[in-house]
Amino acid sequence: MNLSQRQCYLILLGIAILLSGLQLTVGGSSLNWWAPNALESDIIWDIRVPRTVLTWSVAIALGLAGAVMQLLLRNPLAEPGITGVSGCAALVTIASLYFGWLPAFSFGLPALALVGGLFGVSLLMLLAGQRASPTRLILAGVAIATMSSAAMGLLLYLAPNPFAFQEWAFWHMGSLANKSWHSVMLALPGVALALPLVWLGRRFLYALTLSEETVATMGFNVARYRNLMLLAVALLTTASVVAAGVIGFVGLLAPHAVRLIGFNHPKYVLWLSPITAILLLLSFDTIAQLMSTARELPVGVIAALVGAPLLIVLLVRERTRDA
């Protein structure tokens, strides 16, 4: 039986709600959900519910950014981090904490990180050129991501004390632990600003299954729309980085999950990727909480442990297909 996009979306949404319920019940202490006392109410509404809402917000940002990148670059192996945007945003965030420009709870932090993300996009376009091919964009992005990662490693090494190093390193690995409504408020503005941009550029992304010359004859200003979509990716990636640190592979896996269930049209890949990203991040975070360790594993580590082998499988499939 062939499902429509709406039917598939409703099914995935139902599964996401069930997984959210499971995530809410997982934690260091058992709670009486039917008649909670004052302490249990605080735990529910100040710790667990914000964590679930943040999971949805970050997953939507990563899933949508991953879908936009894969459609924009016409490369199924592209993901938000490949542009260097997440690396530059993370670098500026760590630098602002290292030099004391802003405290970790400041609402100016997303704006400062967005500056870093936009710098990464500008540097990407400068290195790749105005009429860059997808291959040149990817190579430029890899170079920027590598440089920003090295700079972050240097700042972490020069941390003023071991506690700061531990906190920043834990944040850099991507974590949803110990988050509050403040973290949710850090993520929401970027997502809210990016969604209208993606909606405006949706037909351009659908048309990119054709050559850029053909897309230009359809009335699209390719350079302008590409820059618009890169700005949306910068907003989405920055929102995720500031709120939860660097979480890789979710943006790569979500569009592929959509294709695996049979929806290959760009329209489906674009709008179903956020909900599949929610399923992935909810699953990763629940696994991170259930694993018996002295300290909760960062969700970014779980995502990498799952995503890296899958990336190898995708690379082998691409090589086999081209052979």
Rank of each mutant, 00 (worst) to 15 (best):
S4W: 07
C8Y: 02
C8A: 15
L13D: 03
I17Y: 00
L22S: 04
Q23P: 14
Q23K: 02
L24N: 05
V26R: 03
S30Q: 12
D42H: 11
I47P: 02
T52C: 05
L54R: 09
V58K: 10
V58C: 13
L62M: 12
L64V: 12
A65E: 12
A67H: 12
M69W: 08
L72E: 05
P76C: 00
G81P: 12
I82K: 03
T83F: 15
S86F: 05
A90S: 15
I94W: 06
A95F: 14
Y98L: 08
G100T: 08
G100R: 05
G100N: 04
S106A: 15
G108D: 04
L112K: 00
A113Y: 09
L114F: 15
G117E: 06
F119L: 15
F119V: 14
M125D: 11
Q130V: 06
A132Y: 05
S133G: 09
R136I: 11
A140W: 04
A140H: 03
A140T: 00
G141D: 09
A143W: 07
A145P: 00
L154N: 04
A159I: 10
F163R: 09
A164W: 06
F165R: 02
Q166Y: 06
Q166L: 11
H172T: 14
M173V: 10
L176Q: 11
L176T: 12
H182I: 03
M185I: 03
M185R: 10
P189W: 02
V191N: 10
P196C: 01
M218W: 04
V222F: 06
R224W: 09
L228H: 00
L231G: 13
A232I: 09
A232R: 07
S240E: 04
A244P: 13
V246K: 11
F249G: 03
G251F: 10
V258I: 08
R259H: 03
L260G: 07
G262T: 00
I278Q: 13
L279V: 05
L282R: 01
I287K: 04
L297Y: 03
G300W: 02
V301N: 15
I302M: 13
A303N: 07
G307V: 13
A308Y: 10
A323H: 02
A323Y: 00
A323L: 14
